[in-house]
């Protein structure tokens, strides 16, 4: 990890250099700063149904700004579905019904007053499989800003550089910004997708198993990137990898669907350190220690 960080010396557009090496499981230093910071989610009684099938019920949680929150749980426990509630991506699927209350910095994001398109500029997402657009590296990053109406070349150039630095990809691609995005490796493509999400200056970035399709070295680079980013954006990450959750997150939420007949629910949520060493619920302990799931 340290070797990789050295490489990135001076590229920390999104972070105050010294914090990078910060312990990933350190929450206290951040909480005093939250008052003025944007990107805080508050969920209460959130339930989701696909048609008649209730998949999530009664989830309530607080997601603090400028930190990493991990959603863990066995396959099919609704982690990704819950994540998609946070930027209303479930709207894109159809036949999905979301109940309850979700606020972003106090504003209801499920109400009519919230335009999902605007919400998604504030809450970006990185998907499980890298999905760069079939265009150049530069155009991939400039895509979001252009949607927001930014046309000035100098401004776009700056955003592209900033975003690529933020995703720790700048040094690798700065000489070939016109190259087609598909020519990048899988790990580079995923960091490109992170950069693409950063370019719209979001308050939150949602990540749905962003490293599950990548090799260990690329995974490491993604995790390092996350560690840097959490000082400027809120990150909510779904992961199947316990070690990953333990390494990179400040809070962990454990979700569980006990049987197919009943919807999934939140078992418990807390500081990652506590969740992984001394969880309140025995089911959390069983899951984390690998007894099921």
């Amino acid at each position: 990890m340290n070797a990789l960080l050295l490489e990135r010396d001076g590229t920390l557009a999104y972070t105050a250099g010294a914090v990078v090496a910060d312990d990933a499981v350190d929450v206290a230093t951040r909480e005093d700063a939250t008052a003025a910071v944007r990107g805080t989610f508050s969920l209460s009684g959130v339930s989701v149904a696909y048609g008649r099938d209730r998949v999530i019920e009664g989830v309530g949680m607080e997601i603090p700004a400028r930190s990493v929150t991990a959603l863990i749980g066995p396959s099919g426990c609704g982690k990704s579905t819950l994540l998609r509630c946070l930027n209303r991506m479930n709207d894109e699927i159809g036949n999905v019904h979301v109940d309850g209350r979700i606020t972003l910095d106090g504003a209801d994001i499920m109400g009519k007053a919230m335009d999902p398109v605007e919400l998604r500029m504030r809450v970006g997402q990185v998907f499980q499989r890298p999905n760069p657009f079939p265009m150049s590296i530069y155009d991939n990053i400039a895509y979001g800003p252009r949607t927001q109406g930014i046309r000035r070349k100098s401004e776009l150039d700056l955003l592209v550089e900033e975003s690529l630095r933020g995703a720790a990809l700048w040094d690798e691609v700065k000489k070939s910004l016109k190259k087609h995005a598909f020519e990048l490796s899988g790990g580079q493509q995923q960091r490109l997708c992170i950069a693409r999400a950063l370019a719209t200056k979001p308050e939150v970035i949602l990540m749905d198993e962003p490293a599950s399709a990548l090799d260990p070295i690329s995974t490491q680079q993604i995790e390092d990137t996350i560690a840097e980013l959490k000082d400027s954006v809120t990150i909510v990450i779904v992961t199947h990898n316990m070690q990953q959750a333990a390494r990179i997150s400040n809070q962990t939420a454990f979700m569980l669907r006990e049987s197919l007949e009943e919807p999934a629910h939140l078992v418990e949520m807390g500081d990652t350190k506590k969740m992984f060493t001394n969880p309140d619920d025995s089911r959390t302990e069983s899951y984390i220690t690998g007894r099921f799931g």
Partner: peptide
């Protein structure tokens, strides 16, 4: 791929865009 449409939507693009 649906991935691409989804990626674009997640960046705050309307369906037309």
């Amino acid at each position: 791929p649906f991935d691409l449409r989804q990626g674009s939507a997640a960046l705050g693009n309307t369906r037309w865009q």
